[in-house]
């Protein structure tokens, strides 16, 4: 209770203040609509929000899974062949600082703009970097005591990788995946701002804003937030299942 109560109180207070600020201050809806107006729109548009969230969610999920798979394979290769790792880490770190999302219009040209592939591809590329960088760091970091111990057991390279390197890198992998899962949703939603097929949350937000239906646009933003939250919580759950030893620690 002590952990849950303060954020809940803050949340309710913020909503009340927001409502009062908008209604008493007569703030125009294009500046900031009232939470009650947004709530009403959420209720009214729940079917549309659900459909758009499903489309964006599918894009995010496919991009997340694809990007993660490629990143895992790349990280395994880069940890196996040291030269590859030395070259790829600074390269990936630099690429990660670039606005990758801006690739969307190019991908729309390379594929047809009526397909879902460009959005999923952008999502996959965005997802790749945090997973690759974190997992590779985990794979390269081995406790020196474990290293010596496995040598005293005369363990082969493959046994060492399976029993020490891979499980040891799991926490790093999930750090990357947590970041990636939020980025996936963001990328899948925002990629629609750059054109291409318009059936997800991003397109709904822009079209509602274009029709100056601001409460409706905010309602779709709320849908996007819920989608992001769902992805994040799913990743947390997966992490708990994959690493029972961490969970028992905190309990």
């Amino acid at each position: 209770m002590r952990r849950v109560l303060p954020p809940v109180i803050v949340g309710i207070l913020a909503l009340i203040l927001w409502e009062l600020f908008v209604t008493l201050g007569r703030v125009a809806p294009f500046i900031l609509p009232a939470p009650s107006a947004i709530g009403a729109q959420i209720a009214e548009q729940r079917r549309n929000i659900g459909e758009a969230a499903l489309a964006s969610g599918a894009n995010a999920l496919i991009g997340l899974i694809g990007g993660t798979l490629v990143a895992v394979l790349a990280a395994l290769a880069a940890s196996r062949f040291l030269v590859l790792g030395e070259v790829s880490i600074p390269f990936a770190a630099v690429l990660n600082a670039l606005p990758i999302i801006a690739l969307a219009p190019i991908l729309n040209n390379m594929f047809e703009s009526t397909s879902s592939v460009p959005r999923r591809l952008v999502t996959g590329i965005v997802v790749f970097f945090p997973v690759f960088l974190n997992l590779l760091r985990g794979l390269r970091e081995v406790d020196p005591v474990h290293q010596e111990l496995m040598r005293t057991y005369a363990a082969s390279g493959w046994t060492f990788a399976r029993k020490v390197r891979l499980p040891g890198a799991l926490p790093h992998f999930f750090t990357g995946l947590r970041q990636a899962s939020s980025l996936a949703v963001i990328a899948a939603v925002v990629a629609e701002y750059f054109g291409g097929l318009q059936d997800g949350l991003g397109a709904r937000i822009t079209s509602a804003a274009a029709f100056t239906a601001y409460p409706r646009a905010w309602a779709f933003v709320a849908g996007a937030c819920l989608l992001g939250l769902a992805f994040y919580l799913a990743t947390l759950l997966l992490e708990r299942l994959a690493m029972p030893w961490k969970q028992r620690l905190t309990s």
């Binding site: 803050v10 949703v185 925002v190 991003g202 804003a209 646009a217 992001g228 939250l229």
Partner: peptide, 19 residues
């Protein structure tokens, strides 16, 4: 909320701040 806000696509608000 700070942690949560990292997990949700708040950049989606961009078209709304345009107002």
């Amino acid at each position: 909320y700070v942690v949560l806000s990292q997990t949700v696509p708040l950049v989606a608000l961009a078209p709304l701040i345009a107002g």
